[in-house]
Nucleic acid binder design. Structure first.
Lengths: 248, 248
DNA sequence: CAAGGAACTTGATATGGATCAAGCCCAATC
DNA sequence: GATTGGGCTTGATCCATATCAAGTTCCTTG
């Protein structure tokens, strides 16, 4: 369920705004495009745009024109039901692509809110389609990215439909840990960008339950919690929580 | 969250195997392709293949080569966690496309099981990509279909994360009702193809809860249940269950 | 047509997480 | 540096749904 390990961008600073930029790894790096193709792809990517913490990259109901590649930062995506309940559908970090849900109706169906100061590259969708008609590798890659989103969503359904609170939290922490590791950050010590309430919304739990479960993990020596700083002290125990066979 | 109403195919029987076939409406009908393009699309669609009730169209772990358009019948898609828990991720009926999750890794990540005798058309994925490079309308349409799957999944997350058992069941019944209506079947009287356990798995409930809740709806006069035959007797009441504002 | 088993219903009880409530801590703001 | 409010923790209680259990119906298969 986790994408293959991808290397951190070590290219010189002056190249960082190009398509080889690490922030666009999901869209570009694994492609193996020719230099010319790279340049074409570069051509459609607009200047990075900063989004302050708390600001919306887009909101449900707004017309759809572009996908967004996160260059830097951290976002939550959430849907609001007719009667006002929020469901966080995902947390997204650098290198990931947002907005694919909007393709179906040409209208955004989620809110995307920055949870820290962030930067995104806008990718006009018409351009993506046009270019991917010319570059089969890009086409294939784009399809894989969309498909990966579907697979991820299925994983969340499994979590919401089958798992107990402790398992959900353990899965959540391990997932974050892996994604930070891929980006070259510590996998055992990281800062949560979201509130307990947002974690709860994502995991189908109330914020009190999130808080209690984190405390319990701490008591058991699995993690250390200091506000939003999390240190994983016994990753294997967390993994064991997940693998435990639940009879039936 | 529901796709626009689409008309039932009234074309003569001898044309039914072509791309205008009603069973492929999701893939073909709304496109407005030229006759030549239609023919090309026809060319990649293989002979319909029958799948008996209980048989698998594909299983998790099998190599991915094709998407499948359901011509006729009813399928469930489900993922199995490492420790053996099943989560039904969706129920699929005629005109829908299955297998898109497999694009990401070239391996199927779900099981697709026929819940009644069914027929599918195989669509080799390489051909789809090639053709959609030539026919922008097809490309756009395929992207919309994938995106719609993502939006659908977000809806399920909202359901699993936020709703009570009664709301989940009501949403489920109304969703089925709409989808039957689109296909020209009765929206108020239909046959469930799945067991209570499968409904429960999809909705994150135990089969007893599904059974009890259906009985309750019957007692309240919202529906009539006879085995797997469901009759919606008061659709508005079911809708009201969903719209009810849950304070907070 | 009979037998067996899967699917379903219904009741009784248990429990995980929600809800309600109170107080604390920290970060932002003046 | 004090103040304020949002975010968080922890305890007590409640409730929706799971779990356990028993019996029924229906469908399949011989």
């Amino acid at each position: 369920m986790i994408s293959p390990i991808q290397v951190r961008d070590m290219s010189p600073r002056h190249l960082r705004n190009s398509c080889t930029n690490c922030s666009l790894r999901e869209l570009c790096l694994p492609l193996g495009l020719s230099p010319e193709e790279m340049q074409e792809l570069d051509g459609i990517i607009t200047q990075a745009r900063p989004i302050k913490r708390g600001e919306a990259l887009y909101r449900a109901g707004e017309p759809f024109r572009s996908l967004y590649a996160i260059r830097l930062g951290f976002f939550k995506a959430s849907v609001i039901s007719e009667d006002g309940r929020e469901q966080v559908t995902g947390f997204h970090m650098s290198g990931e692509l947002m907005g694919m849900d909007a393709i179906s109706t040409d209208v955004h169906t989620c809110d995307a809110i920055a949870l820290e100061d962030s930067e995104v590259c806008e990718l006009p969708f018409n351009d993506i389609e046009e270019l991917s008609r010319e570059i089969p590798l890009l086409q294939r890659h784009f399809h894989k990215v969309m498909s990966r989103e579907i697979v991820r969503d299925h994983g969340v359904m499994l979590l919401l439909g089958n798992m107990k609170a402790e398992e959900r939290l353990a899965a959540f922490l391990l997932n974050l840990s892996q994604r930070f590791a891929i980006r070259g950050y510590s996998s055992s010590s990281f800062h949560l960008r979201m509130t307990r309430e947002e974690i709860g919304s994502y995991l189908g739990l109330k914020l009190e339950t999130v808080s209690r479960t984190l405390s319990k993990f701490q008591d058991q020596g699995f993690i250390k919690v200091q506000n939003r700083l999390i240190e994983l002290e016994n990753i294997d125990s967390l993994k064991k929580l997940l693998n435990t066979c639940h009879d039936e």
